[in-house]
Design a protein around this nucleic acid. Structure first.
Lengths: 114, 114
DNA sequence: CCATCATTTCCATTATTCTGGAATTATGGA
DNA sequence: TCCATAATTCCAGAATAATGGAAATGATGG
């Protein structure tokens, strides 16, 4: 539960949510910290603070590459978070996205459950 | 985005997450405030503070019923939150729930009666 | 109305989080 | 080595959130 709360609070902040979305867009390769700071127009200390926060919760990982530190989203952990919410906070209902375009073929066929 | 951040931060707090889960369990009928305070062992002012927080974000609704105020989870809004996360924060990956007992490669969890 | 119970509001206190300048560490190149 | 660049840590102030006692509001039955 603590882990879940931590992960939620990591995303419950505009700057961090934006940063995380950039990393999601960037995919597995990730982005150098500075690139994120540039996009979000953040002073380095503030940027570092937020990236560290995301990293502490496991939603994000970092690796050194040359003089850059590359961050990337950890999709596995993000999956677990969404999984938790779906299972524990949706009362057994689908909680699947209902937005246009995207049809959830990824869902394992929600077998009826009376 | 503000809405999403607000909803996330509503859940990003242990007391509120617990309260919300109680309401999810309780389903559409909901629970009187006092019942929640009893379960979570909270002084009334603290309880009210957190319920109001959840209600402000729309994750929860309340109605007066006799001398009780009944709270219930708003599954529609919760769905939207999960939908947002799935679509915007999962990079197109499944992020799908394992509905009921189904095991997913990355989900080490289990437990919790069906 | 009055007593009582349920809940909220008020308010002060404490705790936590956010912010960013300045100093520091790390890396690579000339 | 020395310099430039990338990023983090240090630190302190500002802002926001959580806590809960006490008083106020609201609802119901007598």
């Amino acid at each position: 539960m603590t882990q879940i709360v931590d992960a939620l609070s990591a995303l419950a902040q505009e700057t961090r949510l934006k940063a995380f979305r950039l990393l999601v867009e960037a995919g597995a390769e990730g982005l150098p910290a500075g690139r994120i700071g540039e996009e979000l127009d953040l002073p380095p200390a503030t940027l570092s603070f937020h990236l560290a926060h995301l990293a502490r919760t496991g939603l994000v990982r970092s690796r050194q590459e040359g003089r850059f530190v590359i961050y990337n989203a950890d999709f596995q952990n993000m999956n677990q978070l969404v999984g938790y919410l779906t299972e524990n906070c949706c009362g057994g209902r689908s909680c699947a996205p209902t937005t246009k375009g995207v049809r959830n073929e990824t869902l394992p066929r929600a077998r009826r459950r009376a």
